[in-house]
Design a binder for these strands. Structure first.
Lengths: 338, 338
DNA sequence: TTGTACGCGTTATCAT
DNA sequence: ATGATAACGCGTACAA
């Protein structure tokens, strides 16, 4: 049982030709019912398994797709990937996961790497839109479908699956206003990314729509890290007019903010209300559970995969660019419920 | 720029033969320095890129390795994978990640899937050792290197990278004893897995070595989930002699235990000390930070990858089975420091 | 040092 | 309905 059995082996055994066997196995119409059954039967007996590599070489399809995320040890991305897998595995695809760790060089490197592995498509969440578009050109030229999820860049002809970040931010901010907050800080993030620009815009609009003053000084940008949340919060807690609400575009900075607020001896939600973004699991199981905006990541993954499948199966037709936008859901917990 | 350029194209352009081009590109010794440079130069100009699939078909190597984990949205596994990637990417390998979600059927399915994708090796952390070994047989027959990390099964000739779970458990339990705990509960997990058997054994030995009674009733087995931790803890909090220490083989059950203890109005660490296992990030950033045993996951990943590389490069020689055991480190935090 | 010729396992295009 | 043959792109033993 050392060598794998090929279609030649089974052809020899049946006094047939490899071509016939191939056809029978692939349910070609022009093959007799008899031989089809016979072939499939003996294929089973001989433990035949299709050589993916050979098929790939012949067809130009590798049945691998690349997924690029900033990192995968966040529940959000891990869940998106899970959704993608659920949709793709049954179709015989495999998923190659790459992480960029928010480094532009890795982003470029990963795409080239995947291209080199001859993936049939790339599903990605970009880390940085300042990156020049050259990398995407190579995907374009090779006709490799590219689909963005969550963190996209607006590109002609490229599909994407995102959530309505504006709406999520607007709802969260309005919720804070409803709780009586008058001076609401926004912990933002790299606004070269659409999602953070949109959350910023939603926050701003909610303030304006409800007669609150918008103050640029109450918006602070940082990385999505606990420590950053602490550092920033420390600053504005020492302001003259102390804020009484925080809308953070990240659960991690929200957590940092909460820690710092407590360290200052202030009460949540009595003194300050806090809402985060992403609905990471820990927001639920903290003693002081954290309100957050859920992004239905599994659904997002599934949809992304579906869009990919459509594109890859329609290659002949015109590329139908699709922009799917999901509706986020605010989950209200202790950190903002007075 | 539609078709990819092949070695034939560049051979034609230079009035050479594809074979020569192939050799030049692969730095074959028996090629003149001139043509080597010339070939490489024009290859660059013509945007040549090697067809991985063809090379794979010819050489039998796909330069893909499969990594199978129970789940990847735990920091531990995500970090191990990161370590693996750091080691493997520079060598031109890609990583295909599969999750079993602790389901045996998925474990089998994933292996077959990976085999079908013709991976050059499988690095895995098993979810369940009751599974029959048939799946592994197919790996064996196909000479595909298999390496276990963290959750292994003892198999002849198979290498593994693990931590010394006995030691970790022993140290953690001794720490609890040092804090004055007299009646220590062990929240265990599926003991068909070595790691949980070893942690159990380490706990037991620590008790015996320090003159404490070992009571089987204080050991409870459950899944690594917060809710399970709560449920179990509720039970023993109502015991006659209430325990005053908990050593949990999972950070998640430890967290559940802590929640339940607080719900009962008891104080940590005054009334009960708690130590978890894995050093998940949340153990550090909880208000009541949780003591835990660190498993240096990135290091574990790197070592696993290294062992794989050794095996795959030594195929001719005898398989040198390697069992690497890392030393865990107890991180003491508020939940157990009196 | 370079060319020739073949095989890797499939599938597609001719025939028959 | 089935067979013969070529082709996918690369690497390599053998020849020259």
């Amino acid at each position: 049982m050392k060598k794998k059995t090929t279609i030649y082996d089974i052809a020899a055994k049946l006094n047939l030709t490899a071509a016939t066997v191939s056809r029978a196995l692939n349910d070609n119409k022009k093959i007799s019912e008899n031989t089809r059954k016979l072939v499939k039967q003996t294929a089973l007996e001989m433990n035949y398994e299709q050589n993916t590599l050979a098929r790939a070489l012949k067809s130009g399809k590798s049945f691998n797709v690349g997924v690029i995320v900033p990192r995968m040890d966040s529940n959000f991305f891990a869940s998106v990937i899970r959704g993608i897998e659920e949709e793709l595995y049954p179709q015989g695809y495999h998923v190659i996961i790459c992480q960029t760790h928010d480094q532009e060089s890795l982003e470029t490197g990963n795409i080239n790497s995947l291209l080199n592995a001859q993936v049939d498509g790339v599903l990605m969440s970009i880390s940085n839109s300042k990156a020049n578009g050259k990398v995407f050109d190579s995907l374009f030229q090779k006709q490799v479908p590219l689909i963005f999820f969550d963190r996209k860049r607006d590109m002609e002809g490229i599909s994407s699956v995102t959530i309505d970040d504006f709406d999520g931010a607007y709802t969260a901010t309005k919720h804070l206003i409803d709780q009586g907050c008058k001076r609401i800080v926004h912990l933002s993030n790299n606004r070269s990314l659409e999602i953070f620009r949109d959350r910023y815009a939603g926050y701003k609009q909610a303030l304006l729509d409800h007669g609150l003053e918008f103050d640029e000084n109450l918006v602070i940008e940082s990385a999505s890290k606990i420590d950053e949340g602490r550092r920033i919060t420390k600053e504005f807690l020492e302001m003259e007019h102390r804020p009484d609400g925080i809308f953070s575009s990240s659960d991690f900075t929200a957590l940092g903010a909460i820690q710092e607020i407590k360290a200052h001896g202030l009460k949540i939600p009595q003194d300050i209300c806090v809402v985060g973004f992403s609905n990471e699991p820990f927001t639920r199981f903290m003693d002081l559970s954290i309100s957050s905006v859920d992004q239905s990541p599994i659904e997002m993954g599934r949809l992304t995969a579906q869009v990919f499948l459509e594109e890859v199966n329609n290659k002949k037709k015109l590329k139908t660019q699709k922009k799917i936008v999901l509706k986020p859901e605010l989950v209200i917990r202790k950190s903002s419920q007075r």
